[in-house]
């Protein structure tokens, strides 16, 4: 049991499906009888801006918001966002990062440039880093949109939530016509960690 609260920060770019990933994660955790809290932001942030979802579970959770420097896991759907949210991760925390680059508007318009060598920098600073080509695996599963499921699959291998709970949570959270693709993407993520 988690007397100690587990804090997981999901971050990405509006439209990448972090909110749904947070929802599935919270349902999977809740199905084990844990207390769960999730903090999302809706509204303006979704127009292609940075997005953050906080998920926390354990015997008793108070704050839905994760305090900087205390996240056990940081799951970044994009490299730049991984760097932006790094201050949330605790020293011994695990970083799962999608090896995908989505240039923000200031980069597209030439006002600024996308920094190079981010993965190397992250590796140098964080002890436990899992780099995943989630886009490739998602396409393999049948949809580029299933990046979130691949990353959940990777995260799932680090947590003590049984696989059936995940599958159940995915099945009840996505439309039935996408269930197969999503489950496959989750499996590809799950199997990428040996």
């Amino acid at each position: 049991m988690h007397d100690q609260v587990i804090s997981i920060l999901l971050t990405g770019v509006g439209g990448q499906g972090t909110v749904l990933a947070g929802r599935i994660l919270s349902r999977a955790a809740a199905s084990l009888g844990w207390d769960v809290k999730v903090a999302d932001l809706h509204g303006m942030a979704q127009r292609g801006g940075s997005v953050i979802t906080h998920v926390r579970f354990g015997t008793k959770v108070y704050s839905p918001v994760i305090t900087q420097g205390t996240a056990d896991y940081l799951v970044a759907f994009e490299k730049l966002e991984a760097c932006r949210c790094l201050p949330f991760l605790k020293g011994e925390g695990v970083l799962i990062v999608n090896d995908q680059e989505i240039p923000p508007l200031p980069v597209l318009t030439g006002a600024s440039s996308y920094p190079e060598g981010l993965l190397e920098m992250l590796r140098a600073r964080v002890k436990k880093v899992a780099i995943v080509d989630a886009l490739k695996k998602a396409k393999e599963a049948g949809s580029a949109k299933a990046v979130n499921m691949v990353l959940l699959g990777v995260l799932a291998r680090h947590l003590s939530i049984p696989r059936e709970c995940w599958e159940e949570a995915i099945s009840t959270s996505v439309k039935s016509e996408f269930r197969e693709i999503n489950l496959k993407a989750f499996t590809l993520g799950w199997e990428s960690i040996t």
């Binding site: 770019v13 509006g14 303006m44 942030a45 979704q46 127009r47 292609g48 801006g49 940075s50 900087q68 420097g69 730049l80 966002e81 760097c83 932006r84 790094l86 201050p87 949330f88 991760l89 605790k90 020293g91 925390g93 923000p104 508007l105 200031p106 980069v107 600024s112 440039s113 996308y114 920094p115 920098m121 992250l122 600073r125 964080v126």
Partner: peptide, 13 residues
């Protein structure tokens, strides 16, 4: 928390 000493381009909506 681990820190990166670089300025990151903003990602506004």
């Amino acid at each position: 928390s681990p820190s990166l000493n670089i300025t990151l381009p903003a990602r506004p909506p």
